[in-house]
Simulated scan of single mutants.
Amino acid sequence: MDKNSKIYVAGHNGMVGSAIVRNLESKGYTNVFGKSSKELDLTRQIEVESFFESEKPEYVFLAAAKVGGIHANNTYPAEFIYNNLMIESNIIHASYKTGIKKLLFLGSSCIYPKHCEQPIKEDFLLTGLLEPTNEAYAIAKIAGIELIKFYRKQYNCDFISAMPTNLYGINDNFDLDTSHVLPALLRKFHEAKLSNSKEVVLWGTGKPKREFLYVDDLADACIFLMNNYSEMMHVNIGVGEDIEIGELANIIKRIVGFEGEIVNDLDKPDGTPRKLLDVNLLGSKGWTYTTNLEAGISKVYDWYLKSHL
């Protein structure tokens, strides 16, 4: 990408999209833009195609998606599969029709089978059954990967896919009904501290392991891939290390300064037992993460205190 290339970031107001915009602008890209959901409904094909025909972006980061944690995915599966299928299909097809130079589609590590060999390599996709609690979202993201693959194959489009691990960062969702585990815990511990509660409830056993990537590191990886990668295979983006949820809870407890106890609710689901990505493909291209977990959580908590109080 040239510094003055016209770059459209779909989902620019979300956690991932806003991080991509920040990273692009910090690197000196001067023609980066997005559209809010009120300005452009990405689930409507006619609106998306009209937008691409009039704006004619050269590069597209497809970071727009309906996202959420276990509870949200399990409660609203129809919304998760419909919205994500429509968003990705409309943007990918419009990008092909208007002849953009390159597109990066962002998926999710939940595309991989529930009981997957660890660490998870890119070619483990579609080798086993999915985790039931987020199956609808995963199927939509798998469809996006396949769209990218077949548009490359049939139309020779320079479209690529990246699969981030669990993300956290500035502009995250802290709604306890729809958020992912890290921001949900951060909010729980903060509110328990304010109310002088004696305990914070942790869903499940705390034994499942998860890998966490700071969203600004993801954004840096996306721009790296846009400039340095052009192959059929989707690329895992992660840190190559994971942590038990119970240990994560203790780190957040310490950062927030909560002095009570952590109590496990064993009636709640654990979800997938482990999701650790093999990041050797991305590493072989020359990229690695820079933000360690405690430093990243501290940054997010500082931002949360300033923006939510």
Score class of each variant (00 low, 15 high):
residue 231 E to H: 13
residue 262 I to P: 08
residue 224 F to H: 00
residue 168 Y to P: 02
residue 116 C to W: 03
residue 61 F to E: 05
residue 264 N to R: 12
residue 221 A to M: 05
residue 153 K to T: 11
residue 176 L to C: 08
residue 276 L to S: 13
residue 2 D to I: 13
residue 213 L to R: 04
residue 99 G to I: 13
residue 245 I to Q: 07
residue 157 C to F: 00
residue 260 G to R: 07
residue 299 K to D: 01
residue 233 M to A: 12
residue 307 S to D: 14
residue 190 H to N: 14
residue 71 H to P: 03
residue 53 E to A: 10
residue 297 I to V: 15
residue 45 Q to V: 09
residue 279 V to S: 14
residue 24 L to V: 10
residue 39 E to Q: 14
residue 261 E to Y: 03
residue 233 M to D: 13
residue 79 E to P: 11
residue 17 G to L: 02
residue 207 K to N: 12
residue 163 M to E: 04
residue 283 G to K: 14
residue 220 D to I: 08
residue 230 S to A: 10
residue 18 S to T: 01
residue 164 P to V: 04
residue 168 Y to W: 09
residue 78 A to C: 06
residue 217 D to I: 09
residue 148 I to R: 04
residue 302 D to M: 06
residue 10 A to S: 15
residue 94 A to M: 05
residue 153 K to Q: 07
residue 99 G to M: 04
residue 125 L to N: 03
residue 15 M to S: 11
residue 219 A to Q: 05
residue 178 T to W: 02
residue 85 L to V: 13
residue 253 K to C: 01
residue 246 G to V: 09
residue 240 G to N: 04
residue 261 E to A: 12
residue 277 L to H: 14
residue 120 I to G: 05
residue 24 L to C: 11
residue 135 E to P: 00
residue 218 L to N: 03
residue 196 N to W: 04
residue 246 G to H: 01
residue 78 A to E: 15
residue 116 C to D: 01
residue 28 G to H: 11
residue 34 G to C: 11
residue 196 N to D: 11
residue 237 I to M: 01
residue 172 D to L: 07
residue 214 Y to W: 10
